[in-house]
Amino acid sequence: MIQTLKLHSLKWLCIALYLPFSLAAATLVGTPRGWRNIDWLDVFGEGGGALMVLAWTLLILGSRPAGTVSNLIFAGLGLIFVSLWQDNIDEFWIIPDAQLWDTWLENVPMPIGVVILTLGLIRWYQEQRILMAQLSKRERFRREHRSVDPVTRLASADYLEQQLDVELRAARRDQAPVSLLLLDVDGFDRINRRHGVAEGDRLLQALTDLLLLNLRDGDLMCRYGGDRFAIMLPHTNETMAVIMAGELTAAVSHFAYHTHYEGERVRLTASVGLALALSDSPRALMQRADHALADAKQKGAGSHASAA
């Protein structure tokens, strides 16, 4: 988060400068109310509101790269903050009515801020739709950040099980089978032992990107565990699934991965186990794919096999 916040350092500087400036202006032109005349309920409402807005700004900017959307959101929230803060200062100092700037700062930034924030949110929504299209093969229609694997950024096996459940129900209804491929990198242990786990992780990330490029819209890829990936192909019959299994194993064996430090070429092959179902439980389908994968491994590296 700190790294991301650094991207917005200029914006933070603006807020940091505004705060002492507003306090200084109030002490110069206003007269203190005295502790007994302060309405603490107002302070709680207005000041607390201002601080919450500041906290939102922090959370949102901390999770976003720089860009138009970030700028708009910052500007909107910043203006709302200025209004609330100025309102709050009034509780501590009596500022003469002749000081027009105070009334202006209290009332004008709020509506402008709300409009700008709304614009920012609309842009954010558009941006999110583009991102979702990019992520659709990883997550489809549901996002659970807790089940995302930190290495490959793919969802894990329990998410796959949920999605299989949904798709199997659809399969029964539409009488079009769901296919499941389990893809396992051959001899991945040796790669980890030879090049280290950090290199193994990098390889898995690269492989994830490669495999995703080979999938269609509507397919879902998850990390099943270790060096095994699960790929769900909804509405896919056996002929098509076998073709895709062949394409994926071919893509892996043609993949020229080079290690990060030495630039050494790592030769890769993957085996694929394939199973399809019309009305089975997700777990049984996964188990059959697992058996098929064992058969594929028996056939030799880089082959694929279908469940009986």
Partner: peptide, 10 residues
Amino acid sequence: PANPAAHEVS
């Protein structure tokens, strides 16, 4: 555990 599949793979 949450992810028994990882055990089977490993």
